[in-house]
């Protein structure tokens, strides 16, 4: 198993959590995490893995920090 620090933001927090250390099997992808959390892929705006943009196919490793945002903007 690997431990991943999952952070959720904006509307994705509603009914879920702000941040949690979660355990996943080896070779888990970002898409697996998103699916497990029940987040529709189409609503995802930004995926940051250890502060770098990634796509859903990226495989996670132990101690990764994954931030998941809906499409947001401002300025």
């Amino acid at each position: 198993m690997i431990q991943v620090n999952v952070k959720l933001f904006a509307s994705f927090r509603i009914g879920r959590f702000d941040r949690e250390i979660r355990e996943y099997p080896q070779a888990t992808t970002v898409a697996d995490v998103v699916k497990e959390l029940g987040i529709p892929e189409g609503e995802i705006g930004i995926l940051l893995l250890n502060s770098v943009h990634v796509d859903l196919k990226r495989q996670l490793v132990d101690k990764d920090v994954l931030a998941i945002f809906p499409l947001v903007g401002g300025g």
Partner: peptide, 8 residues
């Protein structure tokens, strides 16, 4: 909303 985005 951007504070967390830019920080992350």
């Amino acid at each position: 909303i951007l504070t967390n985005v830019l920080n992350e």
